[in-house]
Amino acid sequence: MLEKEERALLQQAAEGDDQAFHEIIKAYHTTVERFARQIGVREEDLQDVTQEVFIKVYRFIDKYTHGKFSTWLYSVTINVAKDFFRKQKREKEKWKKTVAEKPVMHYEDDMHLSEDGERLHDALLNLDEKYKIPIVLFYFHDATIKEIADIMRMREATVKTRLKRGKERLKACLEKGGHLDARGAF
């Protein structure tokens, strides 16, 4: 979607034009769902997270005034995902008290990756969020350092550091053939 066209749609949506908002949903829902999956949202929660993101966008679209829309959308997705992670953690605690823990479903089993790909994907899923989010944005969403800094509300130097460290960790896992401790995950 052209930037000019997008701006016009956002303006119309902010003024209450439902059709314009539908166009925005159509244009971005795949990106939102994919990003949510990549940063660790469970398969069973993906639809809820994606819907929640657009509900929040709908509610706060009049507050969005400047910058790239996708930057704001990624920020909202991160925050909604974090809410789900918190709920997930609480659920986990409850389950621990009652019955055996429910298995967490990610999409890794059906990806048919090469050995290296599988190893790296496994490491990525278990990488701490502070490294995982910049890595996902940089490598899978072609975001620039500046865009990542805007999305995560941090300095570009910080993003660079996190990308570097995250990459080092992933590379180390690739070399060693192991994976990170799951405690490092969300």
Binding site: H29, T30, E33, R34, R37, Q38, E43, L46, Q47, T50, Q51, Y107, M111, H112, L113, S114, D116, G117, R119, L120, H121, L124, Y139, F140, L174
Partner: peptide
């Protein structure tokens, strides 16, 4: 390997 993972993610059909 990262490119491969990216491609595979992009191939996953959208659920929502």
């Amino acid at each position: 390997a990262m490119q491969e993972i990216k491609r595979k993610y992009n191939d996953i059909p959208t659920k929502t």
